[in-house]
Design a protein around this nucleic acid. Structure first.
Length: 584
RNA sequence: CGGGUAGUAGCGCAGGGGCUAGCGCACUUGGUUCGGGACCAAGGGGUCGGCGGUUCAAAUCCGCCUUGCCCGACCA
């Protein structure tokens, strides 16, 4: 491609709002342009990079036996009503009516669509297992798009769906994805870790997220540097020390001005771990069948030294979503904020008790009276509820596996794999007939990779003061040919020779100064740069410089094509030698 | 959805009741330069986000709306 003819141009200054380096460079180098909040176009450079990523994804998906398909972005709402997600998903899914008033949705994922197709294709156990994937546009009306391509509303996703007759089959295809995903990310050059995850709205059991660890991430990963335990904080567990002792008689004591655990512990001269605190949320519960929504107060009881992890709480309460409760909602159940506990509470609420409290004895808890607490409260004797782990894992807490201190890190989720089970096949009647002639629901799995987000992470991982420096496997071009000589004939000849031998070359044939050309080359970040200049051309040579390392050499023009081919192969080998082969 | 902040040339910004709205970069033309974002000269480009109000006069003050960004809630 001749730069003089290229659609996009580079920007000297970062457009307002480009807060992280990767995003800034993608914008300035002309890979992407923004059209609205969370809505972006891919310009030629970005499109080429994305195409390379997609092809890597295709190769690896095909390698595990998946067949590529393409499902529609627009779905009739009916199939979403069948699974109930038409009701349980809020504004994140966009809905509209077609010309005759039918309810339609923009699919934000394709479990419904693929299950709808599969139930027509699958009849016998002999047809299983099956595995399909697509690379397709998704629209999710995210309430808060952020950081360029990291968190957008319209994006391209590779999503695959597996169909098996049993859990052994699901396990096998799940493991195949687990491994293939590591190959995909490492072939793109992105370092990731797989972590245990919350399945969220997907509703499955086992799931993993692939995380690119970076401060720009919005997820918090809890990991153990010693034994390798990793999990998203939404589900991360940790070892809790319990203090079980003989139950003492409950007693009400005056605790003036002790609204917070800190004040209370200070006033009584005890540790926060000897108290039980209440956190009040209101859960929204949506009826899958008709979309009716009911709200209910959720009282989370947790030891004073711990924090509630809201996603764990939401799961334990089986709520669709939760939000902090208003004071009136708490008082409506006869509890007094600041001095609250489930003891003596009335009305309808869900009480979730963290095991830290259930397994401890004689904790101080609120007396539901301004200025008073109970001492020696005990779960099971003084109040009841659902016992669950709802505590938030923090940096320094004990690893659930080995007991050593856990670490916390920010990460960007670039992919996920879910064992769905029969959640969708049962709801949509996607069954197969087994050897005995019985109809059984198909066991499903779904597996996603955000393509654009992957590019955004790569831009974040591979940049320096000058701009991007992408690995050759994903860079839009393999070679950037910069001609500094006035006589364009040499440049033209070299350009055409390189092109003819199948090398992807970006040729800067513009009438610009050397400084501008070099700066743009650095910004765009093509891995190998060839400079044609009078300096070395006198000796019949051109210079070759690596974008990432800054190393340079020179080659005779006569040998150039072969040498460059070798250099490309060398760069590619660097990637291939580092493909991560990881089994679950 | 709450809080904050901004919208003035393609991009980055200044101007904050008064006469023809400005600067840098980019762009056009001519000339000089030519290996790390050149220089000189001459140009082109604006419904100052939108609607309404106040005023003799609004980019500027007021109201409403809208859009972007940041923080939070949220997020496969």
């Amino acid at each position: 491609m001749r730069m003089s003819r290229m659609f996009s141009k580079t920007l000297r200054e970062a457009p307002n709002g480009a807060d992280c380096k990767g995003y800034e460079y993608l914008l300035r180098a002309g890979y992407i342009r923004q059209m609205g909040a969370g809505i972006f176009s891919l310009l030629p450079l970005g499109f080429r990079a994305v195409t390379k990523i997609q092809n890597i994804v295709r190769e690896e998906m095909n390698a595990i036996g998946a067949e590529e398909i393409l499902m529609p972005l627009v779905n009739p709402a009916d199939i979403w009503k069948e699974t109930g997600r038409y009701y349980s998903i809020d504004k994140e899914m966009s809905r509209f009516n077609d010309r005759v008033g039918r309810d339609m949705v923009l699919a934000m994922t394709h479990e419904e669509a693929v299950t709808d197709i599969a139930r027509g294709e699958i009849d016998s156990y002999k047809r299983l297992p099956l595995l399909v994937y697509q690379i397709q546009t998704k629209w999710r009306d995210d309430p808060r798009p952020r950081a360029g391509l990291i968190r957008v509303r319209e994006f391209t996703m590779k999503d695959s769906y597996s169909f098996d007759r049993d859990y052994e089959g699901l396990d096998k295809v799940y493991r195949a994805h687990y491994k293939a995903y590591f190959r995909i990310y490492s072939r793109c050059g992105l370092p990731v870790i797989a972590v245990g995850a919350d399945s969220g709205m997907m509703g499955g059991k086992v799931s993993h997220e692939y995380m690119y660890l970076s401060p720009i991430g919005e997820d918090t990963i809890i990991y153990c540097p010693e034994c390798g335990y990793t999990a998203n904080r939404q589900v991360a567990s940790f070892r809790k020390e319990y203090r079980k002792e003989e139950m003492k008689a409950i007693e009400k004591i005056a605790t003036p001005h002790s609204k917070t655990i800190e004040d209370l512990a200070g006033y009584l001269g005890i540790g926060a771990e000897k108290t039980a605190k209440c956190v009040f949320m209101v859960g929204s519960f949506i009826n899958d069948k008709n979309g009716e929504e009911t709200d209910k107060l959720i009282v989370a009881v947790i030891r004073g030294d711990l924090e509630v992890e809201e996603s764990k709480l939401s799961n334990a309460a089986k709520a669709n979503s939760i939000r902090p409760a208003h004071e009136e909602e708490i008082r409506a159940c006869s509890m007094v904020p600041g001095y609250a506990s489930p003891i003596g509470a009335t009305g309808s609420f869900i009480c979730i008790v963290d095991d830290s409290v259930a397994e401890s004895s004689n904790l101080v808890a609120g007396a539901n009276e301004e200025g008073y607490h109970f001492i020696n409260t005990n779960y099971g004797r003084d109040y009841n509820g659902i016992v669950a782990d709802i505590a938030s894992a923090r940096d320094g807490f004990a690893c659930p596996e080995c007991g050593r201190p856990l670490k916390a890190s920010k990460g960007v989720e670039v992919g996920n794999i879910f064992q769905l089970g029969t959640r969708y096949s049962e709801a949509m009647n996607c069954t197969y007939q087994d050897e005995e002639g019985k109809q059984k629901p198909v066991i499903m799995g779904s597996y996603g990779i955000g393509i654009g987000r992957l590019l955004a992470c790569l831009a974040e991982e591979y940049n320096d003061e000058g701009g991007l420096c992408l690995p050759i496997s994903v860079a839009p071009y393999q070679v950037h040919l910069v001609s500094l000589v006035k006589d364009n004939e040499v440049g033209e000849r070299i350009y055409q020779e390189l092109e003819r031998s199948g090398i992807e070359v970006l040729y800067d044939d513009r009438k610009e100064t050397a400084g501008v050309k070099f700066a743009d080359a650095d910004l765009i970040g093509v891995p190998i740069r060839i400079t044609i200049g009078n300096r070395s051309l006198k000796e019949g040579k051109v210079e070759v410089k690596y974008r990432a390392t800054g190393e340079s050499t020179s080659y005779l023009v006569a040998d150039l094509v072969d040498e460059i081919k070798a250099e490309i192969a060398k760069e590619q080998r660097k990637i291939d030698d580092n493909i991560v082969e990881k089994e679950l």
